[in-house]
């Protein structure tokens, strides 16, 4: 089998985010809210094409990391504006930093 050409490989971006809300939320609650927003705004096909994935979420700090394709970065940022509540409590997502590697994202944000 021929190897997958490097030029066709998707470029990923890692977004470190913080959830600011009325209370602290669990990983499951945040994950559920993020996916709900994604599906309502861009649907299943959009979510698949954007390469959206939640990598990590630390409940103590209320900070997490998600992944998407570089071409969809601005679009995903726009979509995440529409998250208004997590587990029926008011909240919003603040994107702290965007990086090309997980290592750099962790280094710069201390996640």
């Amino acid at each position: 089998m021929k190897p997958f050409p490097q030029t066709m490989k998707e470029n990923r971006r890692y977004l470190v985010f913080e959830v600011i809300g009325e209370q602290k939320f669990s990983k499951e609650e945040v994950s559920k809210a993020l996916w709900k927003t994604m599906f309502s705004m861009i649907g299943t096909t959009g979510a698949a094409a954007s390469g959206f994935w939640i990598i990590d979420f630390k409940e103590e700090e209320q900070k997490g990391m998600l992944r998407c394709n570089s071409e969809w970065l601005e679009f995903i940022r726009g979509v995440l504006c529409f998250l208004t509540e997590v587990n029926n409590k008011k909240a919003f997502i603040h994107i702290i930093r965007t990086s090309g590697t997980i290592k750099k994202a962790r280094e710069k944000t201390g996640l």
């Binding site: 809300g21 940022r77 504006c81």
Partner: peptide, 13 residues
Amino acid sequence: EYGARDALSLVGL
């Protein structure tokens, strides 16, 4: 306060 978004999110919008 929960209606505010960061600057780059507004760029995304």
